[in-house]
Amino acid sequence: MKFKSRKDNFFKFFVLGLSGLFIAIILIQIFFQREKFEFIFTAILMVMLIGLLFWLYFGTEYELSETELKYKSGPIRGKIKIEEITEIMKAKTLWSGLKPATARNGLILKYRKFEVIYISPETNDIFINKILEINNNIKIT
């Protein structure tokens, strides 16, 4: 089962605001700078950053199968075996570490011995119910 990532207003503002700023800078430089070649490297870098932001915005999702949880967030990809998940902390935000998420107040998954990952499915409760159907030994806090 696939779950899209929830997008909160802060993340939307960040992506759209930064992309708009970069586009404005590029357009100003194109129309008002006399030396066009000096700006090409910076423009290419800004376009790549805009691409990365939109890749994170539209490409963050989670897939739950019978044996593992797969996550994708732009270039960040990975999988976790469901049997290794020991605890899920609900409605929390992880401020450091691996965060393939686009919203606050998501889920912190503890797995293996000391590993932690933060995700933000569209609905936390449905995700928790589905993962508990697969492994009901997971502690929910």
Score class of each variant (00 low, 15 high):
97 G>L: 04
120 S>Y: 02
118 Y>G: 02
57 Y>F: 12
57 Y>G: 02
87 E>Y: 05
73 S>M: 04
107 L>K: 00
47 V>D: 01
62 Y>E: 03
1 M>F: 09
120 S>D: 05
11 F>C: 04
99 K>S: 06
36 K>R: 14
134 I>G: 04
118 Y>I: 02
80 I>F: 04
103 A>S: 14
114 F>D: 15
77 R>G: 08
93 T>M: 08
65 S>R: 05
1 M>S: 12
2 K>H: 12
37 F>A: 12
50 I>Q: 01
23 I>T: 10
67 T>Q: 12
136 N>W: 03
34 R>T: 13
54 F>G: 01
96 S>F: 15
36 K>P: 00
103 A>H: 02
51 G>I: 07
137 N>S: 10
27 L>M: 14
63 E>I: 11
57 Y>A: 03
64 L>D: 00
103 A>E: 03
20 G>A: 08
85 I>P: 00
90 K>R: 11
43 A>I: 10
107 L>Q: 01
91 A>P: 01
10 F>S: 14
75 P>W: 07
81 K>S: 13
140 I>A: 01
110 K>M: 09
49 L>Q: 11
108 I>F: 02
85 I>E: 00
96 S>D: 13
70 K>I: 10
117 I>N: 00
82 I>S: 02
11 F>V: 09
71 Y>K: 01
23 I>F: 09
91 A>Y: 14
98 L>Q: 13
6 R>F: 05
19 S>M: 05
95 W>H: 14
62 Y>S: 01
52 L>A: 13
14 F>Y: 15
25 I>G: 04
80 I>P: 01
91 A>T: 12
1 M>T: 08
127 F>C: 01
77 R>D: 10
22 F>T: 03
61 E>D: 12
93 T>P: 04
20 G>D: 07
8 D>L: 06
110 K>R: 12
1 M>C: 08
119 I>C: 04
90 K>P: 02
117 I>A: 05
18 L>Q: 14
125 D>W: 05
26 I>H: 00
24 A>D: 10
29 Q>C: 10
26 I>F: 01
30 I>Y: 04
3 F>N: 00
87 E>L: 08
94 L>R: 09
55 W>G: 05
71 Y>P: 00
86 T>S: 12
7 K>G: 04
105 N>C: 10
45 L>C: 12
91 A>G: 10
137 N>I: 02
14 F>H: 07
140 I>G: 02
37 F>P: 07
66 E>P: 04
